[in-house]
């Protein structure tokens, strides 16, 4: 008997599952198909008008910085300004996301822009989020050639662009967005839910920013 058969049959014995189990199978299949939503707290039910403000409040509460620009064309200048303000070198690495690719990088000649995954030597990573959940200021970043996962973790500074219209009220609403882009039950290799820059409380339970991941998280909301 394989390990799988042994474990599954022991579970069935403990549960006292009878031979006829059509109802159980139907219950499970239906739940996997319909993915019902459990009761949500009020902060997961913001209206579209409240959403950006709530997202910003929650993201700032976990030490991210948030700025909003009117159009994608303004992103390169915003990035250059941010890096100058933080006293960081104007050098970034980004993924191949077409929305990032279409931005007018040449309009800021001082900004050096590289594409591709990080090997650990990049001070600043730039990603484009699939969306965000306002309820806790959480970004949803999916892996792929467009957004290499190493950019989310290796650079000391992580800048993430998200479209204002992609900020949803809740986690569940963002999963629906993912199902629309990738298909029900289909996932990219990695989905990173990111709420603020990395931190640790392991030394005397005092929270310090910049553990193994980025020390700074800057979010640019477009639109």
């Amino acid at each position: 008997m394989s390990g799988r058969d042994a474990v599954i049959s022991r579970i069935r014995r403990s549960l006292g599952v009878a031979e006829d189990e059509a109802t159980r199978r139907l219950t499970v299949a239906r739940r996997l198909e319909t993915a019902p939503v459990a009761p949500q707290p009020a902060q997961a039910q913001s209206s579209p008008a409240e959403r950006f403000d709530l997202f910003r409040e929650k993201a700032e509460a976990v030490s991210a910085t948030v700025t909003r620009v009117a159009s994608p064309g303004e992103v390169p200048t915003e990035i250059a300004d941010y890096l100058r303000g933080q006293n960081l070198a104007p050098r970034i690495r980004r993924g191949a996301d077409p929305r990032l690719g279409a931005m007018p990088w040449k309009s800021v000649p001082t900004l050096e822009v590289w594409a591709g995954p990080s090997d650990g030597n990049d001070p600043v990573g730039l990603s484009h989020a699939l969306g965000a959940a306002a309820e806790t200021g959480t970004l949803f970043v999916t892996s792929g050639a467009d957004n290499p996962t190493t950019l989310n973790f290796l650079p000391e500074t992580h800048i993430v662009v998200v479209a204002a219209e992609d900020i949803e009220a809740s986690y569940e609403a963002t999963w629906q967005r993912l199902r629309t882009t990738h298909g029900k039950g289909t996932m990219p290799r990695t989905v990173n839910l990111i709420s603020g820059p990395s931190r640790s409380g392991d030394i005397e339970q005092t929270i310090l920013l910049g553990a193994h991941g980025p020390k700074r998280l800057h979010i640019i909301v477009v639109g």
Binding site: Q40, P41, A44, K58, A61, V62, G95, G116, P117, E135, T136, T138, S143, G144, A145, P148, T149, T150, M187, P188, R189, T190, V191, N192, L193, I194, S195, G196, P197, S198, R199, G201, G213
Partner: peptide, 30 residues
């Protein structure tokens, strides 16, 4: 929604990471 609040008093931990399979063709890392 109840995990981080009960654990560290955070509303959400910094990183919640979903991993599905190995890297896909075309993925530059993973």
């Amino acid at each position: 929604r109840v995990l981080a609040r009960s654990a560290t008093g955070q509303e959400m931990s910094v990183y919640t990471t979903l991993s599905t399979g190995a890297k896909r063709s075309g993925d530059p890392d993973g």
